[in-house]
Amino acid sequence: MFRASVAERSAGCRPFRLLALAVLAGPLLGTPVAAQGLSALERQVEAVVRDSWGDAPPSEARRLAQDDTQLECSRVRNEPGEVLRARIQARERERIQYPEGGLVLGDPVEGERIAKDSYGGRVGRLRPDDPGRPNGGSCRACHILEPRDDMGGTLGPPLARFGLTHGTGPEAVRYVYERVYNPHAFQPCTEMPRFGYHGFLTVQQILDVAAYLLSPGSPVNRPESPRQEAPAPLRPAQP
């Protein structure tokens, strides 16, 4: 049962940050508050966010807090200028950690499973994921992964035949590892999640995904050419 419905809140005479919103509606809008690094608007809405997500257990509530890159990218709506780009890129590059055993391609079969698995990280009362079970990367939600993949998303670039142009050399392995670990190190304010930095995928899982993308025998690198026509009844995505 939900602990704090809007009715219970108004019945309990808790004005629910009305004050905060009243200030927000006033002339203070946009005034920077140097002490906290947040503008008045940001501070007021952050108060609303804290209240509106207020009954999440602490382990989940912590997901609400923004880190530096999330805050900066949100502010510029993911279109950073030159200075911000450089700052984010340098900072996120510093955050990449490498496996102790070096960058060695993992298991492409396991990598395929991870790339297509969307399990993990979902919280809530109804169907929370088991934190004990490994997360999937859900790569396919945004990328077409294989030459005949009708179910891949198009938010990210298609990755079919990715390995044919990249090979399996150390540079390719390093690129895929770093790109999945922390994509902001390449493309500041990209929509792609920082899988390694957040620990959403383990270092070994990322190496497995790299093997799936790069190995010559992987379904990603099948020799067939991609389908020309879009699968009915879907409309082809615009570039």
């Binding site: 997500w53 999440a56 989940e60 919280v123 809530g124």
Partner: peptide, 9 residues
């Protein structure tokens, strides 16, 4: 995390 139903957010 899930928002409180009916909350201002």
């Amino acid at each position: 995390a899930g928002p409180i139903p009916g909350s201002d957010g």
